[in-house]
Design a protein around this nucleic acid. Sequence first.
DNA 1: TGACTAATAGTCATCCCGACTATAAATGCG
DNA 2: CGCATTTATAGTCGGGATGACTATTAGTCA
Lengths: 242, 242
Amino acid sequence: MTSPEGYDKYAFEPFAVTVDLAVLTLRAGTLQVLLVERGQEPYAGRWALPGGFVLPDESAEEAAWRELAEETGVTDASGLHLEQLRTYSEPGRDPRMRVVTVAFAALLPDPPVPHGGGDAAQAQWLRFDAIGPLAFDHDRILADAHERVGAKLEYTCLATAFCPPEFTLGELQQVYETVWGTPLDRPNFRRKVLATPGFVEQVPGAARLTGGRGKPAALYRAGGATALHPPLLRPTTEGRPR
Amino acid sequence: MTSPEGYDKYAFEPFAVTVDLAVLTLRAGTLQVLLVERGQEPYAGRWALPGGFVLPDESAEEAAWRELAEETGVTDASGLHLEQLRTYSEPGRDPRMRVVTVAFAALLPDPPVPHGGGDAAQAQWLRFDAIGPLAFDHDRILADAHERVGAKLEYTCLATAFCPPEFTLGELQQVYETVWGTPLDRPNFRRKVLATPGFVEQVPGAARLTGGRGKPAALYRAGGATALHPPLLRPTTEGRPR
DNA sequence: TGACTAATAGTCATCCCGACTATAAATGCG
DNA sequence: CGCATTTATAGTCGGGATGACTATTAGTCA
């Protein structure tokens, strides 16, 4: 055992600790990811998740918020959802040195700040389904983030984190359909959402919105609930793995 | 931004990286946790989760398996469940130095190896509900582990990880009741478990087991399924937080 | 004005689940 | 020996959630 009991300061190998962010949003009906292009080896020219070192006086969570702000330009942490995913620590994941990374998943509503707050490599939004191999083990991190978000849509009210402050039920449904990659029945979705107390609440001013064709939809905002009981399960793919 | 782009080896602060284990089991109908008593400051005399440094050539997962083996004496990783919980990185969590810990939750079937494989501080099983304040932030880690395990019982077949290779449905139900702290209706539990394909399969040899009174129960072993559809939800505590 | 589109309302059968009652098979005490 | 006790297993019943549909309303666009 490498005991943490009475360790002296040099009984261990120091590691570099970083955070990596899987920032997801919905744009034009597609799931998109914030990526930066690497300028140097290794993986020069490849896309990578934004991230950076954890500073000596901050936690991984603080580092993640800081990176998110720097990368997207968002300043109000208000509505945003940022959640720790897991930690990746395989010895060979960065060929240069031993780097342990704490990965986070972040969700933004549609028109997020144009990205690039004035930093090194410009961050860009890329379609989730058209992403080549990423640098390092970022493919796996991104896949884990997608799986996690998809799962949390089932039993939490997380979907509203993808929506602007006021949204229609159609937009909310699009979140589910896009993340899960499955069409949902509209009346049933509506019934389910409205039957869950605290999921959404209607904007009182009889407000409505219509960008295109069709009957104008009522506007809703996120309610106070965070959990979903009973859950809103994905269309059963029969023995879906976990 | 603290860019990982072209970092040189000393552009960052090195951290110590450890693993901490929340090892849970069911003994005598109670949830128990494997703890070690600290012999030195800080928190001398307090109980703490077992753990240790991640070695230079291993991942956090490998370190966790190694520690688990050292602490409990288990050698066959076969049926065991070990799962990464999350990473705790608050700057002040260890007063001596900057330590980032990757926490794991482990589940063992009832009579786990007597603990103490021949190591420093003897590890001991303590009742989950009779645990005073632990060292460091281990109270929080343990609470997170408990919450995670409770949640995963709902939508995975994880419960069998607490059971020996062959078990009765009554024992399986005890797992749920003990972890959740709620009594369940026996016929309904039975119906639900048996209706889920791949959750359990009956041991063919008409085997039976009876330690005490009552009608002997049929024996089952874990099936191949890992997910539970639809889930087996906890008795609704109305707006249970997440 | 008349397609077309999207939102909303409502129906209906099925399945799941909580609450219960009933029966079977063992132990152990008087 | 017989009966109370204990635990496992079987089955019933009603309500609620859900999937699959149909119908109606309220807009836009040509």
